[in-house]
């Protein structure tokens, strides 16, 4: 028998369903309780961690993400200047000891603005993905486990939402709801949960016939318990990998909305807004810092989350285990 894993990449993976994923369900069926993931096999988690740590890009990504999260939490309190404070007598200054990234068109310290933008990006990225997960997991699990009419209705619902061009849909929603960070999150969640739901549905469809699910059902566990305790924990890994990748996508989407003048108020130093503000200076000599700094911030953040997501995927994929 192979070492159990919390996820098996593709739900159709024979190993994952017939061996690796049997144990938790079996335990639950036998004892009436589910062993937490961490307790399921410290060897398995150690394997995952080992593979993750060996992945250099993943570690670089993790370092980036860690710094970004730390900056998001403490940044606005320790930046050299208030990110909102204008100085019209000192606009468009090049990078210097006083202003590391220079100043923008309103004389605001660009470095402080970038750090403030980091807080917004992380906040919107994490909250959007968290809410998308909540909706996607719930609807996906219901569709996959219940099947029948539920599946049909939810699948069509997903199709309808997928039919909206994401950016255009987000613009319409933000315009309807009003400006600000919350409407941006609402819009991005409204148009961002469907893939999670589809992924979850696929996983659950495959897992609901698993032996340990049958075992749980045979001893009288109700559907809710089966889904929450036996199915979702085994279906969630690829969804989490997707979600982590999606954080970068969400950050780019928010920046795109701000670039178009939609979403956060225009005086907020959000990264997309800073790029928009710098666009007229693309052709002006000596002003590259205006767009380069926010553009790099977006690129580095997106890459950081993508590297971590790739590392997670590789670590969790049992197919790679032979290679290790």
């Amino acid at each position: 028998m192979t070492t159990p894993t919390s996820a098996g990449g593709s739900p159709a993976d024979a190993d994952a369903t017939s061996s690796g994923l049997v144990l938790p369900g079996a335990d639950a069926a036998a004892g009436g309780t589910t062993v937490p993931l961490a307790a399921r096999g410290s060897g398995q988690l150690a394997d995952i961690r080992r593979r993750f740590v060996r992945n250099r890009l993943a570690m670089v990504g993790l370092a980036i993400v860690t710094v970004l999260i730390v900056l998001a939490i403490i940044g606005p309190y320790v930046t050299p200047y208030d990110a909102f404070e204008q100085n019209l007598a000192n606009t468009l200054q090049p990078p210097s000891a006083d202003h590391w990234f220079g100043t923008d068109v309103l004389g605001r310290d660009l470095f402080s603005g970038i750090v403030y933008g980091c807080r917004l990006a992380i906040l919107v990225g994490l909250l959007t993905v968290a809410f998308s997960l909540l909706i996607g997991l719930t609807l996906g699990a219901v569709a996959g486990f219940k099947g029948g009419a539920w599946d049909g209705i939810i699948a069509r619902f997903i199709d309808v939402f997928l039919a909206f061009p994401p950016l255009v849909g987000a613009i319409v929603i933000v315009r309807a709801v009003g400006g600000g960070v919350t409407p941006v999150i609402v819009a991005l969640v409204a148009l961002g949960w469907m893939t999670t739901a589809r992924l979850t549905r696929g996983q659950v469809l495959a897992l609901r016939e698993a032996e340990y699910v049958e075992a749980a059902r045979s001893i009288g566990a109700d559907n809710r318990r089966i889904v929450m305790r036996h199915v979702l924990p085994n279906a969630i890994a690829p969804v989490l990998v997707y979600a982590f990748t999606n954080i970068g996508v969400v950050i780019v989407a928010m920046a795109s909305l701000s670039y178009l003048g939609i979403g956060v108020p225009p005086d907020v130093p959000e990264w997309g807004r800073l790029i928009s503000q710098a666009t007229p200076f693309l052709r002006v000599e000596g002003k590259a810092h205006l767009w380069l700094a926010p553009a790099l911030a977006i690129a580095i953040t997106t890459l950081g989350f993508a590297f971590v997501a790739d590392g997670m995927r590789d670590s969790l994929d049992p197919k790679l285990r032979g290679g290790n």
Binding site: V67, V70, I74, V78, D82, Q86, N90, G107
Partner: peptide
Amino acid sequence: AIALTAVVGMVLTGCSQKSNTGTSG
């Protein structure tokens, strides 16, 4: 390495905010 990066990041950002007043107005 992660912790060091985080600390460096924090140190780089400094510990107090300066006034961005200059000669505005």
